[in-house]
Computed example of a mutant assay.
Amino acid sequence: MSRIAAAFAVTASLVAAPVFAAGPDMTMSDPVMVAPAPAPQGPALAFSLRGGVAGNPAYLGSDEYRAGPDLGFKFHYLRLPNGFELGNPDPWADNLGWDVHGSFNVIGERDPDDYNELGNLDSVDTAVELGLGVGYTAPNFSAFADVRRGFGGHEGVVAELGADAILRPSDRLTLTMGPRLMWGNDEFNDTYFGVPASRATANLPAYDADGGLVSAGVEFGATYQLNDTWGLESALTYDRLTNDAEDSPIVRNGSEDQWGIRFGVTRVIRLGF
């Protein structure tokens, strides 16, 4: 080998040596795909309103009936800015398990000028009852207990206890049926079933109604989902007045059997902020 060839070979080996000495880069790894973080969700609120018509006794203990508005409200879901969630975002789904809820009721006014059988009794203004309740819902059963305080027509306290069997003949139709019990304190019962001595007559002798079980009955309900926003709701109720309510002269001139019926349209309201 000539001196030129030998020099070229040495030079080539020196250039190639670092490449082969390093070998393949074993520390490299496949690129990692990072999914973007989900966009933060703002606060949201979902509830439903019911509006329709109802038929009920003209007053507690009456054997006459009158039609009036049927109004209802139901809370479904709340999401706060900090991510806290309460309820179910699907307004048509049952919230299974225990719950704490608001309780609301309205008792219409009683005007003796409209009903001769009420004699000289004082009129009673419309009463609004507000309170809280606790309930439990299973796939085919529910129960609740509510306590309310009256404002306006009466300032007493009432309690209501109920339970329902739940039937679902189809995905859109839900049927409920179950017993109802209602208690009232002295002030409530005396407002609607008592007769003050100063207002007593031959047909309405003086009567002091004490608190206790006011009525026992049953309710049949039906809900039909038209679509994600609209639905139909109806109920038929029967209550039998008991104890001091049943013995009241007001009820003896009327009826201890109290029927009620209502039919309304429900609309789900969804709000995002």
Rank of each mutant, 00 (worst) to 15 (best):
G217H: 02
A159L: 10
L86G: 04
P40C: 08
E160I: 00
Y207F: 11
L232S: 05
N227W: 00
A235S: 15
A46S: 13
E187F: 02
A93Y: 05
L49N: 07
N185E: 05
P40T: 12
G156R: 03
D146P: 05
N243C: 03
G131W: 05
A93R: 15
L241C: 00
E64N: 13
N203F: 11
S234C: 11
W230N: 09
S123K: 13
G156F: 10
E160R: 09
F151Q: 07
F220H: 01
W98S: 02
P89G: 08
G162C: 10
L49K: 01
P40I: 13
T27K: 11
M177Q: 03
T266E: 03
Y207T: 06
P36V: 04
S198I: 10
D257M: 01
N227K: 12
L60N: 00
L236S: 06
M33L: 07
P31L: 01
A22C: 07
I250F: 07
E160V: 11
S62F: 08
E109R: 15
G42T: 08
A145Y: 02
N140Y: 15
G55C: 08
H76A: 11
D244W: 04
E64D: 13
T11L: 15
G68P: 02
L271H: 12
V19W: 06
N253E: 12
A17G: 10
E160K: 14
G108N: 13
R149G: 06
P81E: 02
F8V: 15
E117G: 00
G221C: 07
L173D: 01
P38N: 01
L130K: 09
G264E: 02
S215L: 01
W230E: 04
Y77Q: 12
G254V: 09
L121V: 03
Y224V: 00
V100G: 03
L132S: 04
A165M: 12
L71F: 10
T137H: 08
G108K: 14
A12C: 08
R270L: 11
A22Y: 09
S255Y: 11
M26N: 13
G119L: 13
G51K: 05
G152K: 11
A67P: 02
V134R: 04
N56Q: 15
L236C: 04
P57Y: 11
S13P: 03
D247M: 12
G260T: 03
P249L: 12
D70F: 13
N227P: 08
R50G: 09
Y207M: 01
